[in-house]
């Protein structure tokens, strides 16, 4: 197979002798050492492996690695700028939106694809964007809150306070 060239988290990457059956998640994890992309099911059902390819959230456990030829690929490792966490990562911390944490990178990448395309998403758009991501720990409320908090911050609307009142969770306002 011809040399695979793509942009990974802003940097050009090339991979020689790629086995064409390799899914993107395995290329990222096994060959490029980016273990932040998690594999939860390997069948595209849980969303833990979500990465962004040319602006679109994809489940990388099913996405053939050869398809990223010439594409821009973003993974959880690309969000941090130096020591500075991305606004979504910061919001996940403040909204307490991660417990075991295994699903968190996938949720954050789904949310990033949403916010990149729709900087001011409705609650309904947020929910639809993460409907393909499974979490067994949180019950999702704090995750939805975190994404809404990040969206508000990106819109310059709010800083600091958590959107939901303590002891209240809302899927739809």
């Amino acid at each position: 197979m011809e040399t695979l060239r793509f942009i990974l988290n802003g940097h050009p990457v090339q991979v020689e002798d790629l086995d064409p059956s390799t899914p993107l998640a395995r290329l990222l994890r096994d060959q490029l050492g980016l273990i932040g992309t998690k594999i939860g099911c390997g069948e595209g059902e849980c969303g833990a492996c979500t990465v962004i390819v040319d602006g679109k959230a994809v489940v990388s456990c099913l996405y053939p690695a050869w398809k990223v030829q010439g594409a821009r690929v973003e993974t959880i490792e690309g969000l941090k700028q130096g020591d500075q966490l991305h606004v979504l990562q910061q919001a996940f911390i403040e909204a307490n939106a991660s417990q075991c944490g295994y699903c968190s990178p996938g949720f954050i990448m789904s949310a990033k694809a949403l916010l990149d395309a729709h900087p001011r998403p409705s609650r309904e758009q947020i929910i639809q964007a993460i409907a393909g991501n499974l979490c067994r720990c949180t019950g999702y409320y704090q995750i939805v809150d975190a994404i809404e908090l990040a969206a508000r911050r990106l819109a310059g609307e709010e800083n600091g306070t958590r959107p939901a009142e303590e002891g209240q969770g809302r899927i739809v306002p």
Binding site: E43, E45, N133, L134, I143, V144, G169, I171
Partner: peptide
């Protein structure tokens, strides 16, 4: 054998609102 056959709730399946009192 998979999350297609064994369905855990997604965000769409959760109670639309949750009020908790300690």
């Amino acid at each position: 054998q998979s999350f297609t056959g064994y369905q855990i709730p997604t965000v769409l399946d959760m109670p639309r609102e949750l009020i908790h009192r300690n």
